[in-house]
C-alpha cells in the first residue's frame, strides 16, 4: 500500500498541477489538460488502436526480438574468442557511436519504406547495448565456473546454454533494458519519416493538421506505453533473475 503510494505520488501531483495550471489556458498550442483528456477518449478508440498502435507495437516487438537474438548470439561469439574480439571491437565502437536515426534515410534506400525498413531501423539501433553488454558479461564469467564446467565434461553448446548464458544474464538484461527505450524512440522516429500508419505517423499527422489536443493525447499515450513496457520488462527480469537478486541479497548480508 505504502509502496503504491510512493510510486503513484509524484505522477499524480504532476498531473494535477498540469490540470490546474492549464485549466485557464487560452493558447492554441497548449490547450487545457481537460480538453486533451476529452480528446484522448475520442481519438484512441479501439479501431484506431488496432489501425495505428498495434502495427507500431508489432514492429517494435519484431525489431527488438531481432536485436535481442543477434546481439546475444554475436556477443557470445565475440566474448568467447579473444582474437575475434580484438578484430571487431574498434569497428563496433564506431557503429555504436553513430546515432541510429541517421541510418533511417540510408536504410530507406535499401529496404524501401515498408515494415521491413522500420524493423531494420529498430533492430540496428538497439542491437548495440545488447551486443556490448553480452560481450562484457561473457568475458566476466567466473574462471572457477568455467573450470568446473570443463572438469565435469560440460562442453560445447551445453556449456554455453547451461553456464555461460546464465552467468552473463544479469549483464545481458542490463543491455536489454537500455535497448528497450532506444527501440521505442526508433519506433516513433522510423514512422515519422515515411509511413501510412503507426503512432509516430499519427502524432505528426495531428500536428500537421493542427489537431493540437489530439497531438497531445498521442504523446500521453506514447508515455504510457513506454512506462507499461518498462514495467513489464522489470517484472520479467525480476522473475528470470530471481537467483541473481537472491544471491546479491545473501552476499550483502554476509
Amino acid at each position: 500500500m505504502k509502496r503504491v503510494a510512493y510510486v503513484l505520488g509524484l505522477p499524480v501531483v504532476l498531473f494535477a498541477a498540469w490540470f490546474l495550471l492549464s485549466s485557464g489556458s487560452e493558447s492554441f498550442y497548449a490547450p487545457p489538460l481537460r480538453t486533451i483528456l476529452a480528446s484522448f477518449a475520442d481519438t484512441w478508440t479501439l479501431d484506431r488502436l488496432r489501425a495505428d498502435v498495434l502495427p507500431s507495437l508489432l514492429r517494435l516487438a519484431a525489431g527488438y526480438a531481432v536485436a535481442g537474438v543477434l546481439g546475444v548470439a554475436i556477443g557470445i561469439t565475440i566474448g568467447l574468442n579473444r582474437r575475434v574480439r580484438a578484430t571487431v571491437e574498434p569497428v563496433l565502437e564506431f557503429f555504436r557511436a553513430l546515432p541510429p536515426p541517421v541510418l533511417v534515410p540510408i536504410i530507406m534506400l535499401f529496404a524501401g519504406i515498408g515494415d521491413s525498413m522500420k524493423i531494420i531501423v529498430i533492430a540496428l539501433g538497439c542491437v548495440w547495448p545488447i551486443l556490448l553488454n553480452t560481450v562484457e558479461g561473457v568475458r566476466a564469467v567466473d574462471s572457477i565456473q568455467i573450470d568446473t564446467a570443463r572438469a565435469y565434461g560440460i562442453s560445447g553448446p551445453s556449456r554455453i546454454r547451461q553456464v555461460i548464458l546464465p552467468a552473463a544474464s544479469p549483464q545481458i538484461a542490463a543491455g536489454l533494458r537500455q535497448a528497450l527505450s532506444i527501440a521505442i524512440i526508433l519506433m516513433v522516429i522510423s514512422e515519422m519519416f515515411a509511413s501510412s500508419n503507426g503512432l509516430g505517423f499519427t502524432i505528426v499527422q495531428f500536428q500537421r493538421s493542427f489537431a493540437i489536443p489530439e497531438m497531445w493525447s498521442g504523446i500521453i499515450l506514447l508515455g504510457l506505453l513506454g512506462f507499461t513496457l518498462s514495467l513489464l520488462f522489470r517484472l520479467a527480469e525480476g522473475r528470470a533473475l530471481r537467483w541473481y537478486h537472491g544471491l546479491r541479497e545473501a552476499q550483502r548480508r554476509s
Binding site: 567466473d142 572457477i144 565456473q145 573450470d147 568446473t148 547451461q162 553456464v163 552467468a167 537467483w243 541473481y244
Partner: peptide
C-alpha cells in the same frame, strides 16, 4: 574446488 561459492552455479 576450494571456492565452493564460485564453483556451484548460483542460478541452479
Amino acid at each position: 574446488f576450494q571456492e565452493y561459492g564460485r564453483s556451484l552455479f548460483p542460478w541452479m
